[in-house]
């Protein structure tokens, strides 16, 4: 498993796309942080960008890479290695590489200009977000057979998590605005890894003051130790569950 991961990392770290991604992230972060004297505002802007770009690149790149090395996976399956090890190895390999790109691209500027609890939170949630979208990419890759469909599905997942889900939430809020929805909202938040990550960071940024009662409730929930554990756990679930489903499919899949 780790052997496979090792060679996948060796392969990916030389890929131009990943290097470009790292550079892009650091340019965005550096330009935001240097343009704005207010670190907090800079982090807010970075969060906004990160919440769009990181899931998109993670899921699309992982899916593309999965399909680009499809024949290689076939070859691996013909070798005396279990399918679990192959998929897990691929996940660790791709995950480590994209995560490293994120940590370097965002972490370097943040540590340099905005080293704080919030910055740390941005790094942690961003990392978990990266991994959960790679996990979703694996799911998209295993349920489809060809590259075009796989990438299409990945884009749909991203689009769903970025926009459609929030649209549905808005619709839900409109339709049931007569009911006390705060608790339901916490559950809803947990159903979308992007929302989960965003709210965790925004709460760190003390935006909760702007959020009124809902914000106070979020703060009291996600700000508490219990809530922190819950949200980190939810993010882990967003990594583990899609990967586990992908593994189930991959084990029975004809290559």
């Amino acid at each position: 498993m780790l052997k496979i991961a090792k060679y996948i990392i060796l392969d990916i770290i030389r890929s131009k796309v990943l290097i470009a991604y790292t550079v892009l992230l650091s340019i965005i972060c550096l330009s935001i942080l240097m343009a704005d004297a207010d670190v907090t505002k800079g982090l807010v802007s970075i969060t906004t960008v990160v919440m769009i770009i990181v899931p998109l690149v993670s899921i699309v790149y992982a899916t593309t890479y999965y399909f680009n090395t499809y024949e290689f996976t076939e070859l691996l399956v013909s070798q005396p290695v279990s399918r679990t090890d192959i998929l897990a190895g691929k996940f660790i390999g791709i995950g480590t590489a994209i995560l490293a790109a994120f940590v370097i691209g965002v972490g370097f500027p943040v540590v340099l200009f905005a080293f704080s609890v919030t910055g740390l939170m941005l790094m942690v949630t961003g990392s978990l977000l990266t991994l959960s979208f790679i996990s979703l990419a694996f799911l998209a890759s295993t349920v489809t057979r060809d590259k075009a469909k796989g990438i299409g599905l990945s884009l749909m997942i991203w689009f769903y998590c970025s926009i459609i889900f929030d649209g549905i939430v808005l619709l839900f809020l409109f339709s049931f605005s007569d009911y006390p929805l705060e608790k339901a909202l916490i559950v809803l938040t947990a159903l979308n890894p992007i929302d989960l990550a965003r709210i965790l960071i925004l709460l760190q940024l003390d935006i909760s003051a702007l959020m009124g009662y809902t914000g106070a409730l979020y703060q009291s929930f996600f700000g508490s130790g219990y809530g922190m554990v819950f949200s980190l756990l939810m993010q882990l679930i967003w990594i583990i569950v899609p990967l586990w489903l992908a593994l189930r499919i991959f084990k029975r899949k004809d290559l």
């Binding site: 060679y7 890929s15 499809y70 005396p80």
Partner: peptide
């Protein structure tokens, strides 16, 4: 999968990760 160590397979088209070197592939 254990029996596969007794099998050598040559696929019709060999596709390998682009940035891996031949030596690395053999090592792997």
């Amino acid at each position: 999968f254990a029996y596969k160590k007794h099998i050598g397979y040559m696929p019709q088209t060999g596709c390998y990760p682009d940035n891996i070197k031949i030596g690395q592939l053999f090592n792997m």
